[in-house]
């Protein structure tokens, strides 16, 4: 396999999200149940994520959005129900298998605080590639390309502690996408940003995801951010209440 080809962001001409055939789902969940001690967070949630789709997940605070995402991404193991990624039932796999899956096939983005503060921006972005055994030099080259794509190429040697929140989230997004994941999971990625920075991060995220055909699960309680999605799921009391 040609390394530079897999590492550099590729532009594809085909428009993603052509088919809405349910069999085309990259990820599907059936009857997810999850409780934190005695607090039920999910009470039987089911959903599909289609290939190339940007799916917004909204709902009131405490409704179970984050828990749903953590189960979908294989970070939490549901008490009942299953999560299928293609032909793999990931909710039944071991932690190490799921960890590897997250590293190779998924990207994860949180509100803040996910970059290693001591590493420079380029090292943070190169980290997932280095973990997969890519040589340092080529990992850095790829990381530089991704920083460039998110408009923070000039921050390559800057550490996250010296960046603004918006700059940090762009670097974090670049890191989440550098391994070319099939699915990006983002939990309130703009939650700690002002309106404009949030818009900028979202615009770039959506453009890159569409270019590379990455599906996105976008958790937000902001309708304006949800409007970046192709479809919206509404979570209420641990259940998928509606779709629009």
């Amino acid at each position: 396999m040609n390394e530079s080809q897999t590492l550099a962001p590729h532009h594809s001409d085909q428009t993603p999200h052509e088919s809405s055939n349910p069999n085309d789902a990259v990820l599907s969940a059936r009857g997810l149940v999850y409780s934190f001690g005695r607090t039920p967070a999910l009470r039987g949630a089911s959903m599909n994520l289609e290939r190339g789709e940007i799916l917004a997940v909204t709902g009131p605070s405490g409704s179970g959005k984050s828990t749903l995402m953590l189960c979908l991404a294989g970070i939490l193991q549901p008490d009942a129900g299953e999560v299928a990624f293609g032909s793999r039932v990931i909710s039944e796999e071991s932690e190490s298998a799921r960890s590897q899956l997250r590293r190779k096939e998924f990207g994860v983005l949180f509100q803040f605080g996910q970059l290693v503060p001591e590493l420079t921006a380029i090292e943070n972005v190169a980290l997932p590639l280095m973990l997969d055994g890519v040589k340092r030099a080529s990992a850095r080259t790829a990381a530089a390309t991704w920083l460039e794509r998110f408009g923070v190429g000039d921050l390559a040697e800057v550490r996250p502690t010296e960046m603004s929140g918006g700059q940090g989230q762009r670097v974090a997004t670049a890191r989440a996408l550098v391994a070319e994941p099939k699915i990006l999971f983002a939990d309130e990625p703009t939650g700690a940003l002002d309106a404009l920075s949030g818009e900028q991060v979202m615009t770039q995220l959506v453009r890159v995801a569409r270019d590379s055909g990455t599906s996105v699960v976008l958790i937000t309680h902001d309708a304006r951010i949800a409007a970046y999605g192709d479809r919206e799921l509404i979570v209420r009391d641990g259940l998928i209440e509606g779709e629009s």
Partner: peptide, 15 residues
């Protein structure tokens, strides 16, 4: 916080 999100992103705890 950082460590937890790294693990969430698939960084093995052994690393």
């Amino acid at each position: 916080r950082t460590l937890a999100s790294l693990v969430a992103g698939g960084v093995p705890r052994s690393v």
